[in-house]
Amino acid sequence: MSLLSVKNLRVSFDTEAGLVEAVRGVSFELGRERLGIVGESGSGKTMTGRAVLRLIRPPGRIEADRMAFDGQDLMRATEREMRALRGPRIAMVMQDPKYSLNPVMKVGAQLMEGLRQRDRLSRMEAHDKAIAALEAVQIRDPGRVMEAYPHELSGGMGQRVMIAMMLIPNPDLLIADEPTSALDVTVQAEVLAILDGLVRNRGMGLIFISHDLRLVARFCDRVLVMYKGKVVEELAAQDLMQAKHPYTQGLLNCLPRIGGPRQPLPGLDRNADWAV
């Protein structure tokens, strides 16, 4: 049985300028595998990820024919049931640790929050688990990081803390929403390697959201290409070079290649008919 099953997911926002449809009928199945979702800004990939956690605030609205996680209907779940899923079952790593960590709370308090509040662990036990989680993301001085505030950490360190925090309850599914886009290129690879290793070792499902097609292909089993709120192509990662859809080909072509010809990069061809 699949871990996550999404059929005809729609996310819309009732704004003063009229109805904005961010996601328009996305369907996919996910097992304990790694699924990439690729698209430009505004293609609806982030909203798809957040809709799975039902974290879209009013005036946003989520509709779907079916959205089930491990047999549980997410559309019908109460807010209490959703809270029980968030964290221990489904977790999410966001783009920029500068904004996704609470600036006025110590890193340690944020790491231990779930353990203390939900699992009712003692301070000592929670502390030990948090230290272990920081060690798992290869932070060398976990005791010191626990006592630090987020603004005292570098971007790479912050994102490792974020990953550690989200993986503490050992979720079945991790949604990684552009987890390295805000980081320096030099630390991107490091953070990705850490994330990859942990996801593989623990055998969790992963939804990896990115605008970087090649990165996603290297990292995932399957790739969904989104355009204007719709999936325009779904393909296995190793078949990426054989992508048929002109939009996917366009995304591939507008990346520079080291050692490649030094011509101006082609602009992305956008055709509104693809997303009808």
Partner: peptide
């Protein structure tokens, strides 16, 4: 509207907290 609020919700924290 800040992102760290989403983080707290992703962690499954109750709205009160």
């Amino acid at each position: 509207g800040q992102e760290y609020i989403t983080t707290a919700r992703v962690k499954g924290m109750p709205e009160r907290r």
